[in-house]
């Protein structure tokens, strides 16, 4: 409704920033670090300029904004990969805080897990990573991801399966090495 109204009264777009800026920033920051500060403004400027096309997607405002943020990130894909690689190289502190879960992964400590997840993200194809992180961090449904990335739902499923498989494999290596140790 606000977007529709903003076509007539531009100022009606303003409240959307207050509602969604923090969540969009967190998504951007998890993917690209401190440069998210600039990309946040870019995301909302693009959203404002493209608001006339919003309704064609048939999604709510939140997924629409995450879709725009994801497209903004594509111009910074190398930087994003560098961030994951750097995080993957962070040495594990032997005194790091352990955490417990019911499954085998519970034996890993949080630091090494974060490092291995970063390593997995670094090797994912860009499209697979977009789908995985829109699902994990933006918590979008398959249909919402398909709409905002303009791809079929079947493609979302296959990309997500592939991304999860790669991530699982990266973690399995760690589990195996931890168990051997």
């Amino acid at each position: 409704m606000l977007i529709q109204q903003s076509l007539l009264v531009a100022e009606r777009f303003g409240p959307l920033f207050d509602r969604h800026a923090s969540a969009v920033h967190r998504y951007l920051a998890r993917r690209i670090g401190s440069d998210a500060d600039d990309l946040l403004a870019e995301t909302f400027l693009i959203a404002f300029r493209r608001r006339a096309t919003y309704r064609k997607l048939h999604v709510n405002v939140r997924p629409w904004l995450f879709g725009i943020a994801t497209n903004v990130l594509r111009r910074h894909a190398r930087q994003e990969k560098r961030r994951y690689r750097a995080l993957a190289r962070v040495p594990v502190d032997p005194g790091g805080e352990a955490y417990a879960t019911d499954d085998a992964l519970g034996r890993l400590d949080a630091q090494s897990l974060r490092r291995d997840l970063a390593a997995a993200l670094a090797v994912l194809k860009r499209g697979d990573r977009d789908v995985l992180l829109l699902s994990a961090w933006a918590e979008l449904s398959y249909n919402e991801i398909a709409a905002v990335l303009d791809i079929p739902v079947g493609t979302v499923r296959s990309r997500l399966n592939r991304a999860r498989r790669v991530t699982r494999a990266a973690l399995s290596i760690t589990i195996t090495s931890e168990e051997r140790a």
Binding site: S22, H25, R26, L87, A118, L121, A136, W137, R164
Partner: peptide
């Protein structure tokens, strides 16, 4: 994997008031 990414994936500082 999704839950692990949510809880233990790369993270960053939340937006400050000046950034917003």
């Amino acid at each position: 994997e999704i839950a692990l990414l949510q809880e233990h994936g790369p993270d960053s500082a939340p937006a400050t008031e000046s950034v917003l």
